[in-house]
Every structure is written in C-alpha cells, then in structure tokens.
C-alpha cells in the first residue's frame, strides 16, 4: 500500500526572496499579505502591489522585544510575565542596484539625478534640470505619447521620471510612493520628479513618443504629470525622512514548503552602506560585487483580529503530505 504521508524534517532552503510594497504614508496604511489567499503565488509574479526585488543574502531578522517577570511574594518569585517593549529588526543585502533597492537601503530621501539644463550651476543633488515635457492623452504605463519635438529630446536607453510639478505643497510628496516629506515649501518645480519612484527605462523612441522597457510603478501617468530624463541616482547621509515599506520575505523549502516573514511596516534604520563580496573567494584582490546593505526597524500595527500590537507575522505552509 502506497504511503500517504511523510514525516518532514526541518525545511531546507537556499536564499531568501524579498518583496516590498509601498506604505501609504499619508493614510498610514501598510500593505497586508494574506497567506490563506496568496500563499502559493508564483515567486516570479507576486500579487499586486508587491514588487519583486529578487534574491537577497545575509537575511537576518532579530526580535528585540523584551519581557520581564512580575514578581510577588517573599522571597519574590515570578507570578506573570509582561511584555515591556515590542521591537524587531531586519537586515539583508540586496543583490542588485535599482531605484527601489537603493531607496530601501538608504536612510533618507533617495533622489533621481535629473538631466541638467544648459549652463546650470553645479549642485550636489544635480543641477537645475532641463525642462520637463508633457505626456499626451493615450499614454499608458509602458508607452508615453509625446509631441514630435518632445520625443526628439529622448534616446533609447534613457531613464525617465514621470510625476507632477512641485507646486509648493508640504507633507508627503511623490506618486505612487511617498519619496519625501516636506515640512516647508520649496522653490524647485522639479522636486517631486527628483524624489519620485515612478521611473522606467526607455527601450524605443518613435515620432509618437516613448516605449518603456518596464511598466511605470505608478501605472498610467497621472493628470498633470510631466516627463524628465534621469541620468542617475543620489542619496545622502543625513536628512529627516525615513523610508517606510511593507516587507515580505519568502523562504521556499526543498519539499515545496514555504516560510513567510511579513512585516507590515519596515522603516530604514541606518544610512547608506555597502558590503563587498569577492566574486572569486580564492582571489580576494580580484573583482568584487558591491552589495547594498539594508537595515530596517519593524514598526507595529494593530491586528484587527484581536487588537494586539504586532511587528511581524511568520507564516508556514507545510509541504504536501507532510505530517504536522
């Protein structure tokens, strides 16, 4: 008779997959992951709005919550335990440098370096930018319709930022992800496009506009959005803004089991830092991979199930036919 179950040992997994989703800062709403409905999603195609950041390494999660005994009697003996503090931290190394991984791995605003205007005075964050152009109606998340003269300003291989003009507002700015928090009004009309996460690579330029190699994270350009060329990225040590994202980390075991670590609110807790890893361990002086180090503090949410304040959910989906 064929066996219908097996006794599963501890999961055996390789690296950890990381997925992040933007927290709505203005509404203070994190993105939730439901293991009952989404637990078997394809790791290459996560459910929206989770963004796949690929494999990460040196993933370490640490509980810094503290409990203390409530003492009673003579001599004193523990009667109960109480949770004094709730704190958790996550650290990891990203295996790629993208707008999002750089943004996550810096402790403050992460800015786009906009293509400079002719003759603009030098600035550490990038000089005054060349004027933005206006997308025409019919634009999509992967295609930006432009006037002929505007399309001629772009080349295949360029990076673009798509967001609205800065108009003196304060508070969180950037669509669809808050890229900065402004306490006082600025004068730079391009500031929102400097901090926006709504960037993409141009794969093709035609007389009608731009074809993008990847969809814009913000989808169809919003009303009032404009387009500018990005030449690179810059972040700073210092500043008062903290990135906040929802994080989901997945370890897939050799038998198909899955371990999820879901942090509804992760804030970057350290400045930008890199780790260097030699490609050939036998040749420490040879080429080395430069990895972005991310360190995060988990902030609590209130679980509507029972009103408890929690910082992380760990879920486990066992392998098929494994004893539990």
């Amino acid at each position: 008779m064929a066996a219908t179950w097996f006794s599963a040992p501890a999961p055996v997994a390789r690296r950890v997959r990381a997925f992040f989703a933007p927290v709505n800062r203005a509404a203070q709403t994190p993105v939730l992951f439901d293991p009952s409905e989404q637990g078997r999603f394809s790791l290459d195609a996560p459910p929206a709005p989770w963004i796949n950041l690929g494999w990460v390494q040196d993933f370490v999660r640490k509980s810094a919550s503290k409990s203390a005994p409530l003492m009673t009697g003579i001599p004193a003996a523990p009667l109960e335990q109480v949770r004094e503090t709730l704190e958790a931290q996550v650290s990891l190394q990203f295996l790629s440098w993208t707008k999002l991984t750089m943004g996550l791995a810096t402790g403050s605003q992460h800015m786009n370096i906009l293509a400079p205007a002719n003759g603009a005075a030098p600035a550490a964050d990038g000089a005054q930018a060349s004027p933005a152009v206006i997308p025409q109606s019919g634009s999509t998340s992967t295609s930006i319709v432009l006037a002929l003269a505007d399309a001629a300003k772009f080349t295949p291989g360029a990076i673009i930022a798509v967001d609205v003009d800065y108009a003196g507002q304060t508070g969180y700015v950037g669509t669809p992800v808050a890229g900065a928090y402004l306490r006082q009004a600025l004068t730079d009309v391009d500031y929102v496009r400097r901090v926006t996460f709504n960037v993409a690579l141009v794969s093709q330029v035609t007389a009608n506009g731009l074809t993008l190699a990847e969809p814009l994270p913000g989808g169809v350009p919003a009303m009032g959005a404009k387009v500018q060329t990005v030449t690179g990225f810059v972040d700073r040590e210092g500043g008062s803004f903290y990135q906040e994202w929802s994080g989901l980390f997945v370890m897939e075991g050799s038998q198909g089991e899955r371990i999820f670590f879901h942090y509804p609110r992760l804030q970057a807790m350290a400045g930008a830092e890199e780790a260097v890893s030699p490609l050939n361990q036998k040749n420490q002086g040879g080429h080395s991979r430069v990895l972005l180090k991310g360190q995060f503090l988990a902030l609590p949410v209130t679980d509507p199930l029972d009103g408890e304040r929690v910082a992380c959910y760990r879920s486990f989906l066992p392998a098929a036919n494994a004893l539990v």
Binding site: R14, R15, G54, W55, Q57, L95, S96, L279, N280
Partner: peptide, 9 residues
Amino acid sequence: MDLASTMTG
C-alpha cells in the same frame, strides 16, 4: 543564478 541576470565565470 540568483542574480537579476545569471552570471557566469
């Protein structure tokens, strides 16, 4: 194979 593009040495 764990990178965004597979690296070969």
